[in-house]
Structure formats: structure tokens, C-alpha cells
Design a protein around this nucleic acid. Structure first.
Lengths: 138, 138
DNA sequence: TCTTGACCTTCCTGTAACTGGAGCGTTTAT
DNA sequence: ATAAACGCTCCAGTTACAGGAAGGTCAAGA
């Protein structure tokens, strides 16, 4: 099938599918006219990639997952380790965002937010008050 | 002062400071030898930028915040609105990450993670089982 | 004076993972 | 016959810088 139909079936834009080919994730057949020709196996792989990306795996992770998927003798522990690493990344990111959120919420609550120019948010960014050492995150 | 000293005082790498100049965020003086020459006001602005970036404001947000900061007749409501928008972005991102985390944690708990090749994580990515409609996020 | 090393300069490239568009050829339907 | 819809490749842009090359400048020591 043509790339348009493959795109429809896997849920990825055609542009993305071509990009995945550029970086060596898939290698569809070509017809005489130069058009890419996808079979069901290709679409299956593309769907695999779409799901893995949606779960936040990097392209490199996806490459790895795909090779594990195609390796009949893989150990499920390898996959589990990849997934655990993803969860750790996610946890770190969530913690960081929650810290930022708390700082911003605090500043927002301190700002009267009217037509007057004085603003604790800007004051904080400008470093008004005691010099802060690592006030948020890091 | 030279860029190295300014970098040390504001907590940003010299590369980043030059980049901020490229995109028009700051405009330090130049000496006869072509070296950038930062005064205390410049360093103050750079520190402002460093703090705003650390709070997750985009460069465009920073540009906006800086212009508000320099506008003596600004309304604090404008700043508050920017900060609120940031909090909304953060909340959305956190929710998304938590959803991803839950899905991954579920798959991880279902995977025995040993030397055997069968793996529910890969099965899920491959679409084994009932076809999922938008299982996570979005 | 010469040299060494630490700075500084500009410019180019690369990152992640695509997206948009130009300019062109092909297929399909009317 | 022609127009729409699709396909192709290649190039540029996105975010916010980081790394490095090639070269100029400056202060200190031998």
C-alpha cells in the first residue's frame, strides 16, 4: 500500500513515516514508480513505534525496543529495565515540575494583580530581597 | 567587565549570554578591542533572565517579562497572567506525565522480567489483545 | 623580548523529532 | 484532456543552546 494508507492505519503522519525511514527504523519496499510500498508487517512496526513514542520512549529507546521485539530469544527483563528507566525519568520530571509549580503559585498568590506596577513576581525575578541561593529545583 | 566575569555573576554560561545577545535580549557595550563590556545593569538583567528561565518561562516569555520589568507603568495583572499561564502549562504537563507513568507502571507490574522472551510490555506496544483506542493521554 | 596560557571574538555544526513548504512527477477520476 | 489528489526529494525552521575551529588580545613570567 502507499504511504498515505499506511499513515492512516498506523496513526502517524506520512512525514513522520518518511523520517523514520531516513533514520533507519523501517525499510519499506519500493515500486517501479519510486513509491514506497508498505505491507502489513511494516504497518505493524509503525503502529508499534507510534505506541512506544506515545508512551514517551525516545527514538533510540524505540530502536532498542523494536530490536528486542524482533529478537525471538530476548529476555523480558531487558524490556522491563527500559520501561523502569522511563518511569524514573518521568518521576524526576514530575518532581521538577511540581517544584516549579509551587514556586510560581506562591509568587502568584503574593501578587495583587491589578493596574498597579508593583509586582512580587518581577521583584523575585529581579532578585529583590535577600539573595536567594538555589531557590527552586536543582 | 568581560563576559567571563558577567557569566560568573549571573550564573549563565558565556555561550548562553552571547546567544541572548544574538536574539536581542541584551545589548552590552563594546570596548575598542571588540570585547563585550557588561555593567551592573546588564548583569542584573542576565540574572533576571536566568531566574525566569529556571522557572520554566520560554525565551519569548522572558522577553515579555523583561519588557514588563522595564516598563515603569506596567500593570502587575499582566505579569500575573503570564505566570498563571505557566502554571497551567505545568499542570497539563504533570497530568500527562502521570498518565504515562500509570500506564508504564501497570505494564511493568505485569511483566515477569526474567530470561523468558514473553513480555506484556512488548505485547502491548505490538497491539496484542483488543485494539486499544487512545489508551493513554490525549 | 618572547612565550605561554587564559581569555575573547566570529562562524559553523549538531542536538530531538519532527513539520512545513517548494518544485516536481504520477495516478485517478471526470 | 485536465484537474485533483497523491507521491517523491530536498531544504529550512523549530527550541535553546553546546561544542569546536580558527584566530585575535592581554597579562605575567623567563
Amino acid at each position: 500500500m502507499n504511504i498515505g494508507q499506511a499513515a492512516e492505519r498506523c496513526g502517524l503522519p506520512a512525514k513522520t513515516i518518511r523520517y523514520y525511514e531516513d533514520i533507519g527504523l523501517i525499510r519499506p519496499a519500493r515500486r517501479a514508480n519510486g513509491y514506497r510500498d508498505y505491507d502489513d508487517g511494516d504497518v505493524h512496526k509503525l503502529r508499534f513505534l507510534q505506541r512506544a513514542r506515545r508512551l514517551g520512549f525516545s527514538i533510540d529507546d524505540c530502536r532498542h525496543l523494536l530490536s528486542l521485539y524482533e529478537d525471538e530469544s530476548r529476555a523480558s527483563a531487558d524490556v522491563k529495565a527500559l520501561a523502569r528507566a522511563r518511569v524514573d525519568e518521568i518521576d524526576a520530571r514530575i518532581a521538577e515540575l511540581q517544584s516549579l509549580r509551587a514556586t510560581l503559585a506562591h509568587l502568584i498568590s503574593a501578587c495583587h494583580g491589578d493596574d498597579r506596577p508593583d509586582c512580587p513576581i518581577l521583584d523575585d525575578l529581579a532578585g529583590v530581597g535577600r539573595p536567594r541561593k538555589t531557590p527552586v529545583g536543582q
